[in-house]
Amino acid sequence: MSDLESNVEVVAKAAVMNQLPADGSGVRAESPLFHAELEVLAKQGPQQGGVHLRENKLQGHLTLRCNQNNPDQLAAVETVLGLALPIQPLTAVVKGDISIRWMSPDEWLIVVPGEQTFDIESCFRDVMTGHYSLVNGSGGQTIIELWGPDVVSLLKKCTPIDFHPTQFPVGKVVSSIFAKSGAVISRTGEDRFELVIRRSFADYLWLWLQDASREYGLVIEV
């Protein structure tokens, strides 16, 4: 065994921290679109339109990087999450409230309910073997759900991706340019999409989406 291989075997215990404030601590969790007051807009804004928008906020976002040719690691992921890593490029798998998006040949985005993040991350640390990386990026991004009859027309304004059903079937996920920023776009239904966007771009994209959907009518939901 070379020095490099023996070093890989000695994996230091990773520091895992529960990023959620304890109950009763008085700390308020604010999503990246907290300031937009979507709850108020959902009540007071239009109730009919071609595009519906909802922020799927405060989810746990875990970025997993590992080797897709390592059967032990694939089995470990299945043990922890109850669903297998999507090895096929540009695909996503969903089971209940847990989803895994393919990001690159050695990177996946695992989205879990916010309050389960710490438990799942800890479980990964116990079960995963070998050389891997797991990072909790929950605070850095948020998910926007878009649906409605005009949602494809809206998305066509924002990104060069081809949304024809033959090119972009339900279950596909792509990372691409989105309105000069970036987004991970996945199709969850015929007229239903999810965007994973960066916290720092959330306000800009919120303004952009309001502007781009003006001609169709934008309905905010919670």
Partner: peptide, 11 residues
């Protein structure tokens, strides 16, 4: 070659 499809140069 990793995504397995054609994309715009912008990406």
């Amino acid at each position: 070659p990793h995504c397995g499809e054609h994309r715009e140069e912008e990406e």
